[in-house]
Nucleic acid binder design. Structure first.
Lengths: 243, 243
DNA sequence: CTTTAATACGAACGTTCGTGCTATATCAGC
DNA sequence: GCTGATATAGCACGAACGTTCGTATTAAAG
């Protein structure tokens, strides 16, 4: 599944995808590199993202690719920024179109889960959360990479928390809910779903995470807020055969 | 925090521990190696567990250490088994002494969290869950190591689930609770707490995880079961300053 | 005392990693 | 068409990794 540099297509948002000139070529190549880098790193981690491997997959030479970044760390940082852009585009922006309050909070979680699950047909069944992988890989490796990852994840937690607060301000969620606590729990469900997917390929975990989130939202929503949530699915209530 | 086998002049590792005999010596060395290996791997992951580093920390030669295991993979597998033993000793066994049902279920979660948090004074502030780190490191690396990790984590999930079922059988928990779902959620809270600790050094996350677990236990417990849980702490209800 | 086998060491091998130097195409502007 | 910047390739280095091999030490067995 090599990625050829010049197929043209490449749906992702590139500043000037078709700009001509030698100068622009480098930028486009860099962009292509980063897109593949995010793919690899999502599945195998930021350290599995080897320059040699990246070059091979892109049919480039190591040094040619390396020239686009001053160091491995720069490549990692750039990859992180690219992943953040993708995340914003795929998760944050769609959620912002939902109505502020409970609908947006639910949409954030729902889209996040879809994003990790491997949204559409992307590329088979890879999936996996870039930041979850990167975080656990660098949590014990101090440096700029780790700091940036921590910053971005804090950003994400903050967004979740704000959505909770806004739900309360809109009178859709009970005031006695601690927003930080709820954000922690939602984030944990997402980590748990990602964990189950990566380790067992258990796609059902996403249904469980959604149910966990929804149950909590319903539990804490006011009378006015409850109507804004998806309808309750009929529970299949059958004891699992699992011993 | 090096572990010196014996200060003997030339770094000679000669020590007459409890058991005598040349034969037993190897076994003791191996055990010492594995204990240090678990420590390193808990903090830095199974791949950060380099043979060279392990040897340095033990004041041994790489080859001398290597001789105890046929390969790196064998070392990893042995380290996993050692970690499992520690886990059983530190978490499972204490929980089994709690009364079957809700008390045991709560104890399992509580002890697990303490275990990850770094329980006592162990060695400063390391902490971190061996299996969480190992799982996310190997989830995309097929092989015996990954399989064993998956097996052990499934074992753990199964224990959690059984505790839920037993709580229901004891009439302490409502029957409409899906044990698999609850086990998933508890596991997610634990992953979330570990994540926050590793990335932010946020020990408060454990309080949050405990609260999340307890709230769920209370929510689903029957009238008879509720009394078996820890008393409700007075909520400090103060809005966090965090923006 | 001699022999044996367990234990550990030191040196080296082959590989892979990140990285630096140098050369060569390829286009923009004069 | 020449010049100069830019993009990519080729090659080599040093470090670290897992691993192998030959050897020294030494407790236990004969």
């Amino acid at each position: 599944m090599d990625v050829i540099l010049e197929t043209g297509g490449k749906g992702r948002a590139v500043k000037a995808g078709t700009a001509k000139g030698r100068k622009a070529k480098g930028g486009r190549t860099r962009q292509t590199i980063l897109e593949v880098a995010v793919d690899i790193a999502s599945a195998e981690g930021l350290e599995g993202l080897t320059i040699g491997r990246l070059a091979t997959q892109l049919s480039m030479s190591k040094s040619g690719l390396f020239a686009h970044f001053g160091s491995k760390e720069d490549l990692q940082l750039a990859t992180i920024e690219e992943a953040r852009s993708v995340f914003i585009e795929d998760v944050i922006r769609p959620a912002l179109q939902a109505e502020r309050g409970l609908p947006r909070l639910w949409k954030l979680c729902d889209t996040w889960l879809s994003h990790v699950q491997g949204e559409g047909v992307s590329d088979g069944c890879s999936g996996g959360c870039f930041f979850a992988a990167a975080a656990s890989e660098f949590d014990s490796r101090p440096g700029a990479v780790r700091d940036r990852i921590a910053e971005i994840m804090k950003e994400w937690l903050s967004i979740l928390r704000r959505a909770v607060v806004e739900s309360q301000e809109a009178g859709q969620m009970n005031e006695d809910v601690d927003p930080t606590q709820l954000a922690f729990e939602f984030n944990a469900f997402e980590l748990g779903a990602n964990w189950a997917l990566q380790l067992y390929g258990d796609k059902q975990a996403f249904a469980r995470a959604r149910e966990a989130v929804l149950e909590r939202l319903r539990r804490h929503s006011t009378r006015g807020g409850a109507a804004l949530l998806p309808p309750i699915k009929a529970k299949p209530r059958r004891a699992r055969a699992k011993k």
